[in-house]
Design a protein around this nucleic acid. Structure first.
Lengths: 170, 170
DNA sequence: GCGTAAATGACAGCATGCTACCATTGTAGC
DNA sequence: GCTACAATGGTAGCATGCTGTCATTTACGC
């Protein structure tokens, strides 16, 4: 489906020619940025779809392995708002996912010595094995998708994405 | 909120140390890629939120200005599935957005000489002025967010994102 | 200590995306 | 021309995310 990407690109690129707007600023940077924004939208959708397809045999979804990944890497457990802060999502959205995951036995809520109401989220044994299974498909996937991409390009792109995140998240 | 990004980064970086998994491959590329994936998720959410906030005075949402942008740049109109293909979304999702936009008077459906049922989507006068208003906030926003970023970085990042899109979209 | 602000839980409503399904229209092979 | 396959419209159900609201708990300034 390279044609689609090319199509968006060509449509974008034809903006100045088509002249839909009397705007005078068609700097390369602006075009690059808008292209990048649309591409991030597109890539996000594809990554979610890919992540869902890759882990559906494990009974996971992209929303779930985001939570599992964060919880698995915390040693003492995390609160629901804490997970939300790491993921950059609303605590309500995370709460709903964790509630279902608790029902499914992937995680458990444990009393939090530092807060009477805000309990800690921990992985159950089932959750841990789900995490290991996740790693076993996710790691090869990551390697597969970067084998012919120079490290420098990955670093540059990551740095830029993070800079944009930093700027927008305030 | 750089702390959040740093937190994700540090958590990710501590994977090999924490040793949640016996996986032997902790190559820099794999870590970079997973970091990039999480960052794309994060950036996508921020871009949607920013886009919504930026255009709410215009009565638009991110889903709407995606459609408006695509339709505005087409000369002869586009069918609903056509818009969906350009945006990389399901036609049903686009159809619902366009139906509401038609009710709101932003777009109109016009008979398609090439297809008896698949009508063409065109901007109304109201839709066109919404597009111009969109450009007037979107262009400065794009320029503002790239003024201190080298063109080369933008190009590298865009190239990488497109390469990933190309690979995943098959 | 006290009072106010911030954080959290819980619930509701809404927007956006997906897939599944079926009827209808277009396209292509024969 | 006919038939089979693809594309499209339409509807429905579901998952995920957001904001708003209110009560409760925690944290902080004085």
């Amino acid at each position: 489906m390279d044609a689609l990407v090319a199509r968006v690109g060509s449509i974008r690129a034809s903006t100045s020619a088509a002249g839909g707007s009397p705007s005078s600023t068609h700097s390369p940077k602006r075009m690059l940025f808008l292209d990048l924004v649309l591409s991030v939208f597109r890539l996000n959708g594809l990554l979610v779809a890919e992540g869902d397809a890759m882990t559906e045999d494990l009974g996971l979804t992209s929303a779930r392995w985001k939570v599992i990944g964060v919880v698995a890497l915390s040693t003492a457990g995390l609160t629901v708002p804490g997970i939300a802060r790491v993921l950059g999502q609303s605590r309500q959205a995370v709460q709903r996912i964790t509630d279902v995951m608790a029902q499914d036995g992937l995680i458990t809520y444990q009393p939090n010595p530092k807060h009477k109401r805000s309990v800690l989220v921990l992985l159950t044994d089932e959750g841990k094995s789900a995490y290991h299974a996740l790693r076993e498909v996710q790691d090869p996937w990551a390697i597969r998708n970067t084998e012919d991409i120079p490290v420098e390009e990955l670093e540059t792109a990551l740095r830029l994405v993070r800079r944009l995140i930093q700027r927008l998240d305030k």
